Amino acid sequence: MATGTAEMPKLGDETSYRNYFKQSPMLLILVALAAVFTVFVDNFVSYANFANMARLFAPLLILAIGMTIVFIAGGIDLSVGSTASMASVVCALVIQHTGIVALGFAAGVGTGLLIGAINGAVIAFFRLPALVFTLAMLLTVRATALLMTGGYSVGKLPLSVLAFGRGSFLAIPNLLWVSIAVLLLAALFLARSRRGREIYLVGTSERAATFNALRVTSTKFIAYLVCGGCAGLAGVTIVARLGSGGPVVGDNLLLSGIAAVVLGGTSIHGGEGTVFKTLIGTQIVILLEKGLNLFGLSFYDQAIVMGAVIVAGASFSAWMHRRQSTR
């Protein structure tokens, strides 16, 4: 079980490079996709395109990081997309009624934490199946958001919201800085904290973790709590990017988030994965979505290509994992 990230190879050390790519096989696919789109798609390599991709990339990466932690713990959360939508609605409503942007952002993240706490409490303490309960939460949260807004977006927010969401610092979009901060905090949490190590152990074997007197119940609760918080923050970044919130703005994030986590190589059976691998998976998803769109493919053609790449990438990662395990 690998609980850390792959060490960067030393310059000129071919063996180290070979081992690094074995631990992150999807990195080769990421490089190949970037090369293909650079050659065949006009204006793909431009600051405007990269800045746009970075703003799309930020909410997906933040949400996928939360999903990664739940996957490592041996769980699943199907409610993350609806949670992001609900968080965007609450965030936008609070800003609209108070005019305080920071309060709205905090309310959005708090909404995600609340939904994550409900998921974690029911799944960890009452032992309801995660697949069933989070599916029920997906429907409940989505319906609640639609009732709160009447099915419409919540806009007319202060210009400072868009100024932050579309602004940059040191030529890097602000939202990308936020996602990088979340990535580093999550990596430190998983690799350096006792609770992070327990998440790996619980995901590897919940029964063995129980016999070794680990805090299984509270560990699973924290995994879902963090996942909900990440989904809430993803919803807040959507508000900052669009200047509005809506009851369905996060719906596409669920499938894209699962794709990013699986393509990154995190095991759906638990106990294995890192947020840095999810970073690679997220880059692949965004590259595909943006590159195929610029290439001129229709939505349905893009869905077919995306599905084929997900299956191929997941199969390749599984094959590499089995090969390394055999050796």
Rank of each mutant, 00 (worst) to 15 (best):
G229D: 11
D13C: 09
D77T: 02
E272R: 14
L28Y: 07
A308I: 15
V311T: 15
R323Y: 15
N52S: 13
A48Y: 09
A213T: 12
M8A: 09
T326E: 08
V262E: 03
A34R: 04
V239S: 07
L139G: 05
M53E: 04
G104V: 02
G245E: 10
T274E: 00
F295N: 01
V182W: 13
S88Y: 04
G74E: 12
M26S: 13
I29V: 15
D77H: 00
A303E: 13
A312I: 05
V154L: 06
A303S: 09
M26T: 05
D251I: 11
V109S: 09
G120R: 05
S317M: 08
S267N: 08
V41F: 11
I95H: 14
M137D: 03
G235C: 06
G165M: 09
L147Q: 14
I280P: 00
T266K: 00
F40Y: 07
T217Q: 12
L56M: 04
V70E: 00
L254C: 00
L176E: 01
N119W: 00
G270C: 15
L170K: 04
A259R: 01
A223G: 11
G232H: 09
L78D: 03
R327L: 12
M306H: 02
F189V: 06
G167R: 13
V45C: 05
G250V: 01
K290N: 11
I268M: 04
V109M: 06
S16V: 05
T15F: 07
V248K: 08
I95N: 08
T237R: 04
V94P: 05
G75I: 07
A32S: 15
I69K: 01
A223K: 02
T219E: 11
V70N: 04
F299K: 04
L170T: 08
G120Q: 09
H269S: 14
Q283K: 02
L242C: 03
G116D: 02
S325I: 03
R241I: 05
V80F: 03
C230V: 12
I118W: 03
D251Q: 06
A181C: 11
V94L: 10
A171K: 13
F21N: 09
A6D: 08
I65K: 07
L63M: 12
L135P: 01
A102F: 12
S24T: 10
A308G: 15
G228P: 10
S168G: 08
A231E: 04
G167A: 13
S24P: 00
A163M: 09
F37M: 10
N293D: 06
S79N: 05
S325F: 07
L146P: 03
L103I: 12
T217N: 15
D251M: 06
T98I: 06
V80A: 03
A240E: 11
I238S: 04
G245S: 12
L11Y: 05
V202T: 13
A102V: 15
M148L: 15
K10W: 03
L288D: 00
A102H: 08
A136L: 15
S82I: 07
S315Y: 02
L292C: 05
N119L: 09
K220M: 15
